[in-house]
Design a protein around this nucleic acid. Structure first.
Lengths: 343, 343
DNA sequence: GCGCTTTTTGCAAGCGCTTACATTTTGGGA
DNA sequence: TCCCAAAATGTAAGCGCTTGCAAAAAGCGC
C-alpha cells in the first residue's frame, strides 16, 4: 500500500488527488474548478489552476465518464467516407463538435444494414452521448437500444416529418420530382434513370420513388430504372446498356453526381452530344459538377448545414420525452450545361 | 442503500453484478467470460453467456477503460476530410480497426499546427491507445505528451527512416524527383511548380524540395514555384499567373491532383493544347486523374496500404522502448495523357 | 483412493473522478 | 458586535469493471 502510493506520486500521470494535495484543498474543489469553475472562489480557483498547470495535470476521460455518466463524445455512422458527400458532412460535424469540446467517434457501414447495426452497437458500448445516422431505415432493435441507453440520435440526409425519430435533411423524392418536371418542361418524354442500389438505402429508394411518381403524374413511365453502385465506371456501363435498347432515352436521371459523371464521360466517348442529343442530371452537387464541361445539372445537397445542425442538435441538453426534431433543408435544383431541350 | 439497489436492478441497464447474480457466479468470472473466455470452463461460460444474452447486458466502456487502462480506441488527426486522400486513408483505417473491435476517434486540424496540437490534446484526454498523425512536423510538446501517456503513434504520408517517430508512407521528395526526371527526359527544360501551401505541411515542403533538388541536379531552376491552397480554382488562377510571364513553362508540376485538374481545365479554357503545348503532372492519383481527358500523369499515393498498415501498427501490443517502425511504401509514377515531349 | 500439481473460481481492492450531503466560512443586516 | 442565511469547501460514497492473490476444485500418477 505504502509502496503503491509512493510509486503513484513519483511515476505516471498526476491525478486529481495529487493536485488536491499539492494545492492543499479537497479533491472535490479541484473537480469543481474543472467542471463548475463558477462555484469556486476566484482566489482558490487560480491557486488550483496554477498547481494544475505546474503538474501538467489532465483529467482522465474514462474516470470522468464513469463518475458522471457523460462522455462528451458523439458518434456518427455513415455508409462510407469514399463518397465525398459523407466526408463533407463528417468534416463539418467534427469541426462543430470540436469547437464545443466534444470528440467524434466514427464508423462506416459500407451500405450494409447488419454491419451498421453492429457498428452502432460498438459505439454505444464505447459510450456516446449522441449519434448521427444516415437515413432512417435500419435493423430492428437499433432504435430500442438507443432509447434504452437514452442516447440522442438524428437521421440525416432525409426529411420524414411524421417519423418518431429526429430527421435533419431534405426531401429526396421531392428533389427528383423537381428534376423530372424540369426535364419534362424541356420537352423530354423518354427518360431513364440510373439509380444507386436501393437495398439498405432509403435515400436511393426515395429518389427512385420520386422519379416514378413524377413520371406517373405526367402519364409517363421510365424507359428503364437501373440500379448501380455509385461509381464512374458503373455509370459508363449503364449508359451503354441504355443506348443498346431499341428506344433510346433523351434524358438520363442519375442517382448521384458520380454516376452522372460516368454517363457524361461515356456519352462523350460514344460521340453523343450533351445536351443536344442527351440530357443528363446528377444529385449532390459535388464540386466537379461545376468544373466539368459541360457543367452538370444537379440537386444541391445542403451538406454543411446538415452537419452543423446535426452537431447542434446532438450537443443540446436533452429533456426526457421531448418531441423529435424535424428540420427540412432546401435541396435546390442547379441548372448547368448538361441539360437542354429534347432533340 | 436498500432503495438504491432496488432501483438499480429494476430500471436502467444491467451491470456485470446483475449478470453475476443471475448466473450465480462472481463478477470476476463474468468479467473473464467477456475478456479472457479461454480462462473459463466451457460449461460455466455458456451458462454466463446465456444470462448475458437474456439480460441484454453490454459492458460499460468507460468503466472498463478505467479499470484496465485500455480504451480500445485509436485516434486520428488529419488536415481535412475534404481532401479525398485523407478520407480514403481514414476509411481504410476505420475498416481495419472495426474488424478488430476498435473504434476510431477522429479530429481535423485544417492544416493548422496549433489547432492540431489542441485536437491531439482532446483525443489524449478522452483516452486513446494509439494515434495516427499526418506528416511528422508538429507543435513542440506534442510528442512529449504522447510519450508520457505512452500512447503509440505513427506519422503517415511521410517516410523518414532516421526519425525517432514511426513513419509509414512514401518519400515525397523522391517522387517529385522522379517526375522531374521523367519530364526532363521528354525534353522539358522550362518547368514551373504549383505547390500546396508549405506552411505547417511537411509533405508539401518535401515535394517542393524534391523539385528544387532534381532541377538543380540538372543545372536547371524552376521558372516559378507558386504556393496555393489545394483547390481547382487556385490551380486555374495559378496557371494564368504563369502564362502571363515572359518565359512560359512547357511543363507544370502540381502539388496535387486537384491543383493539376485546375491547371488542366484552365489550359483547355485558354486554348492551350495538353500535352502538345503544355505538360501537366499531379500527385495522389485520385480517381478523376484517370477519368479526365487527357488522363493525368501523376504519382500514385498508396492510400489503402497506408491506412491498413497504420491500423495494424497501432493495434499491435506495444513493448516498452521498442524502436520506431519505418515503412516505406512505393509511390509510383503513373504516366497518362497530360504529359508529352516538350514542344 | 491419496497426495500432489494444475486449473478454475472467488474475493476484494482499486482505477480517477463526480456529487449529494454535511460542515465551515463569509457577509450582511440589526 | 452578534446572528443567520447564503456561499464555499470538505467528506466520502459510489460509478462498473479488471485483476492479483487466495481458496477451491479438478486432474493425474500410483
Amino acid at each position: 500500500m505504502e509502496r503503491k502510493r509512493l510509486q503513484k506520486s513519483s511515476e505516471g500521470r498526476p491525478t486529481l488527488e495529487d493536485v488536491a494535495a499539492a494545492a492543499e484543498v479537497s479533491t472535490a474543489t479541484v473537480s469543481r474548478c474543472l467542471s463548475h469553475p463558477e462555484k469556486v472562489r476566484p482566489a482558490l480557483r487560480s491557486k488550483v489552476e496554477a498547481v494544475i498547470a505546474r503538474l501538467g495535470y489532465t483529467p482522465h476521460g474514462a474516470a470522468r465518464a464513469l463518475a458522471s455518466s457523460r462522455t462528451n463524445t458523439i458518434g456518427a455512422v455513415i455508409p462510407t467516407l469514399s463518397n465525398a458527400i459523407f466526408a463533407a458532412v463528417i468534416q463539418t460535424l467534427q469541426e462543430a463538435l470540436a469547437a464545443e469540446g466534444r470528440t467524434l467517434l466514427l464508423a462506416a457501414s459500407d451500405y450494409d444494414r447488419k454491419r451498421e447495426a453492429q457498428q452502432i452497437g460498438n459505439l454505444v458500448v464505447r459510450g456516446i452521448d449522441g449519434l448521427m445516422l444516415t437515413g432512417e431505415e435500419r435493423e430492428p432493435g437499433v432504435y430500442d437500444l438507443l432509447q434504452r441507453r437514452s442516447i440522442r440520435k438524428v437521421c440525416t440526409y432525409v426529411h420524414h416529418p411524421a417519423s418518431p425519430h429526429s430527421t435533419i435533411g431534405f426531401d429526396n423524392a421531392a428533389a427528383m420530382v423537381r428534376l423530372v418536371a424540369f426535364l419534362h418542361d424541356l420537352g423530354h418524354r423518354r427518360m431513364a434513370m440510373i439509380a444507386g442500389l436501393s437495398q439498405d438505402n432509403d435515400r436511393a429508394t426515395e429518389r427512385i420513388e420520386g422519379v416514378r411518381r413524377a413520371l406517373a403524374a405526367r402519364d409517363l413511365a421510365a424507359l428503364a430504372i437501373l440500379e448501380r453502385r455509385y461509381s464512374v465506371n458503373e455509370g459508363r456501363q449503364a449508359l451503354r446498356t441504355l443506348m443498346e435498347r431499341a428506344e433510346r432515352p433523351t434524358a438520363v436521371l442519375c442517382g448521384n453526381d458520380v454516376l452522372a459523371l460516368g454517363v457524361l464521360l461515356e456519352a462523350q466517348h460514344l460521340g453523343i452530344r450533351v445536351p443536344e442529343q442527351l440530357s443528363i442530371t446528377g444529385f449532390d452537387d459535388l464540386w466537379l459538377a461545376r468544373e466539368i464541361m459541360p457543367g452538370l445539372t444537379t440537386i444541391h445537397a445542403p451538406l454543411r448545414d446538415m452537419g452543423r445542425l446535426a452537431a447542434d442538435y446532438l450537443m443540446a441538453p436533452s429533456t426526457p420525452d421531448e418531441a423529435p426534431l424535424h428540420r427540412e433543408l432546401p435541396a435546390e435544383l442547379v441548372v448547368r450545361g448538361s441539360t437542354g431541350p429534347a432533340p
